[in-house]
């Protein structure tokens, strides 16, 4: 019944969005390539983070907003997507202290904690 109704919203200029997405793609390919041979670690990390990941978020936002029509969709859907992403952040925050913990990698009992005594206990 609402087939016509929800198509009433004006379609954005998809071609323009598409071109912007392509430009961003080029940026994200060549950004990390450009700094590949630079020694300074800080510059490399900043450039890669921005060109690879910030751009990825911008691209994702553009696709979600205009191609998936989240901009004109009922707010409840937007809210739903946000909750799912938030839960993933909670997961990341709760788990990373354990997975990122390097203590115990290639574990050797160097301090002889709980070492097996050479002679059986009486």
């Amino acid at each position: 019944m609402s087939d016509h109704e929800d198509h009433e919203h004006a379609h954005p200029d998809y071609k323009k969005i598409y071109y912007v997405l392509l430009v961003l793609l080029v940026v994200s390919i060549f950004g990390p390539e450009l700094v590949k041979n630079i020694e300074n670690r800080i510059i490399v990390v900043t450039v890669v983070l921005i060109t690879a990941f910030v751009v990825a978020f911008i691209k994702a936002g553009m696709v979600a907003a205009w191609f998936m029509h989240l901009d004109v969709e009922n707010k409840i859907v937007w809210f739903l997507m946000a909750i799912c992403l938030l839960c993933m952040l909670v997961f990341l925050a709760g788990v990373s202290p354990d997975v990122l913990n390097t203590e115990g990698d290639n574990w050797q009992n160097s301090r002889k904690v709980g070492a097996i005594p050479s002679k059986p206990l009486e």
Partner: peptide, 25 residues
């Protein structure tokens, strides 16, 4: 199906930097 397809695209948008271009980090 368009929404689904865009989502598949979105996943790739994140897979791409994670696996391919961020090797410098």
């Amino acid at each position: 199906i368009g929404i689904y397809w865009h989502f598949v695209d979105l996943v790739w948008i994140f897979l791409f930097p994670l696996f391919y271009i961020a090797s410098g980090l």
